[in-house]
């Protein structure tokens, strides 16, 4: 057991440990102990603020009527400020709530990343999980902060709300021509679907070789055993290529990281670098048919 390196002022764990009987046979049943720590406390409070501001914003829309809140929850949305406000601090009703909520959401994510980092190091692990998480953080920052600042308007950031986030996804694509023609979006989606394939392959392989103990991956990496051998041979015989217990996790991390990084680059290039991805497709010559749809 590695030693605790980070000493924190909020250093405490929950005392009770619970067990979920329902999960028996499927997964580990133990819940807790949860570690608090300074970064955990900060993340918790800033997330609480974010939720509180969002709740106030939503509450104003429904007149603080709880039944109306439930009924309209799917379409309740906190919008960013209108384009006329640019990057200014907007009045609360006109996007100020969104700005505050986004600020605290960003802080939460940053604190959470630091928290994972300190916990990983304290438990003697390499900080790979926070590094992987920071890829997602980069995508978040690209969408919510860097792109809006680059185009000089918070209005291009996604609103907060169930329908709002879907509308933004749709409309961002429509505004910049067609995101399917964005090559970085293509790479990102390729990696996203590829991640699911790799996950299914890896999960299925390990489940299939449970009886031989292939799931003890940390041990298998150092000294591979019968289960890992059979798992490797399965893929070698099926498709002529096999990863090892170690390299499959490198593939995993690589693909999953590529999703976020390529997606972030695609978002950042939209607007300043390329306002219309379909026209980019026209110039690249990849539009199917006779390129008739490329209006002059």
């Amino acid at each position: 057991m590695a030693t605790e390196v980070y000493r924190e002022s909020f250093e405490r764990r929950t005392k009770t440990v619970r067990y979920i009987r329902l999960l028996e046979g499927l997964a580990d049943t133990q819940v807790g102990p949860l570690y608090l720590g300074m970064w955990g406390a900060l993340a918790f409070f800033s997330y609480l603020l974010c939720v509180f501001i969002t709740a106030i914003g939503f509450g104003e829309q429904v007149g603080y009527n709880p039944i109306r809140f439930l009924r309209e929850l799917p379409v309740l949305t906190l919008y960013p400020p209108p384009p006329s406000q640019g990057l200014r601090m907007a009045p609360l009703q006109e996007g100020g709530y969104w700005q505050l909520a986004t600020l605290f959401l960003t802080l939460t994510l940053v604190f959470w990343t630091i928290r994972i980092w300190t916990r990983a190091v304290a438990n003697g692990l390499r900080p790979m999980v926070p590094i992987a998480f920071s890829a997602a953080l980069f995508l978040y920052a690209a969408i919510y902060i860097i792109h809006p600042i680059w185009v000089n308007s918070w209005n291009e950031a996604p609103p907060h709300g169930l329908r709002g986030i879907l509308l933004w996804t749709n409309h961002f694509s429509v505004k910049y021509g067609n995101f399917y023609y964005n090559p970085f979006h293509m790479v990102s989606i390729f990696a996203l679907l590829g991640s699911t394939v790799i996950l299914a392959m890896h999960g299925a392989t390990i489940l299939a070789t449970l009886a031989y103990g292939a799931h003890r991956e940390i041990d298998e990496i150092e000294d591979s055993d019968e289960g890992t051998h059979r798992a490797q041979l399965l893929w070698r015989w099926v498709m002529g290529f096999n990863a090892t217990a170690y390299s499959i996790h490198q593939w995993a991390l690589g693909f999953a990281t590529l999703v976020a990084v390529a997606g972030a680059i695609g978002v950042l290039l939209s607007g300043p670098a390329e306002p219309d991805w379909f026209q980019w497709g026209c110039r690249a010559g990849i539009v199917p048919g006779l390129q008739k749809a490329c209006v002059p």
Binding site: A2, G124, R216, I218, E222, H249, W251, A256, T257
Partner: peptide
């Protein structure tokens, strides 16, 4: 799926080949 894949890959990579330092499944838990 991408999230789970990323977490799992990163977790195993962070604990792999550290047996000499006494790192086991218990550390991940």
């Amino acid at each position: 799926s991408a999230f789970v894949l990323s977490l799992h890959g990163a977790t195993i990579l962070s604990a792999a080949r550290k047996k000499s330092e006494g790192v086991t499944e218990e550390n991940v838990n």
